[in-house]
């Protein structure tokens, strides 16, 4: 094919780009944080979480008569239940609409036409959303801690920080699941629908399924405990209780079994289960995104 009269553009030989560049991941993460701040749903969930955390702290400390530790215990228990409801919903929906939304708007194809890899895009989205999610959780717990401090409550700072950390890890696990949904969904509305269904499954069907299985199959405490490790929300619940109360007696025979069978390894067991719930969906999302064509 003949060129015009122009001199061909000289090609400068550039060094090959790395497959995974931290700089690119951070750049994409910053964009994702910016997008999250524009996402009304995300802001609404964050606001709801903060307000509910505030309300629960006020209620929990109202009946303590400035007595101290019991106020913290009650607040922590309330916050655990709040986290179990709100954080998975916030993380699942944020993850589920992120890539599907980009695909719908046409920005995904444009981004992937730039010199970035799909893995960098996925990690950038994960890091950005995780940061936003972490900030929302920290805000909720921060407000709660502030209320307790103003009311003169004494709190176990370590337990408090562990609770924030566990909530964030739960959020990351649900975010990774949401990203799997997002890589598969063509439209953000479809992704959102699947995310809400998954949330219902994790929050309600998971609990009911476990209870039903225990009754129908006459599960022994050990089997019940091991089965509950398959649900990240149950893992969070158990690890939070263990973290705040230093015992799982509240969970009944399964909790007692866990305390007897894994007296020292429980934090590692719970930690590994939650990390697996982050790593496995992320790996799956990466494979799906890499194999899937971008319309």
């Amino acid at each position: 094919m003949s060129a015009d009269t122009a001199t061909p553009h000289p090609t400068v030989r550039l060094a090959p780009l790395p497959r995974l560049s931290p700089g690119t991941v951070l750049l994409l993460a910053r964009k994702e944080i910016r997008d999250a701040l524009r996402n009304r749903w995300f802001l609404l969930y964050a606001l709801a979480f903060t307000l509910l955390a505030l309300a629960l702290s006020l209620l929990a400390t109202a009946g303590t008569g400035f007595e101290g530790a019991s106020g913290f215990g009650r607040t922590a228990a309330s916050l655990i239940n709040l986290v179990l409801l709100i954080v998975p919903l916030m993380a699942l929906t944020a993850g589920a609409v992120s890539i599907a939304g980009e695909r719908e708007r046409g920005t995904l194809a444009y981004l992937l036409a730039q010199p970035i890899s799909r893995l960098e895009l996925l990690l950038g989205k994960f890091v950005g959303l995780a940061t936003s999610l972490g900030a929302a959780i920290a805000l909720g717990f921060g407000v709660s801690a502030l209320v307790m401090a103003m009311r003169g409550e004494s709190a176990d700072i370590g337990a408090c920080l562990r609770l924030v950390g566990l909530s964030t890890v739960l959020g990351l696990a649900m975010l990774a699941v949401g990203l799997v949904v997002s890589t598969l969904a063509r439209r953000s509305a479809a992704g959102l629908g699947v995310a809400v269904s998954l949330w219902l499954a994790f929050v309600f069907a998971g609990d009911l399924g476990l209870m039903g299985s225990a009754i129908v199959f006459q599960l022994r405490p050990g089997e019940l405990f091991h089965l509950s490790l398959l649900n990240p929300l149950q893992v969070f619940r158990m690890s939070s209780l263990e973290s705040v109360n230093a015992t799982l007696d509240l969970l009944g025979p399964a909790g007692v079994f866990a305390m007897q069978e894994y007296p020292r390894a429980l934090p590692w067991l719970f930690g590994s289960a939650l990390v697996a719930w982050i790593a496995a969906p992320l790996a799956l999302a990466s494979v799906v995104l890499a194999r899937r064509s971008t319309p």
């Binding site: 094919m1 003949s2 060129a3 015009d4 122009a6 001199t7 061909p8 553009h9 090609t11």
Partner: peptide, 9 residues
């Protein structure tokens, strides 16, 4: 197809 350097297709 082949497009040579500097050409337009």
């Amino acid at each position: 197809l082949h497009v040579e350097r500097g050409a337009s297709l």
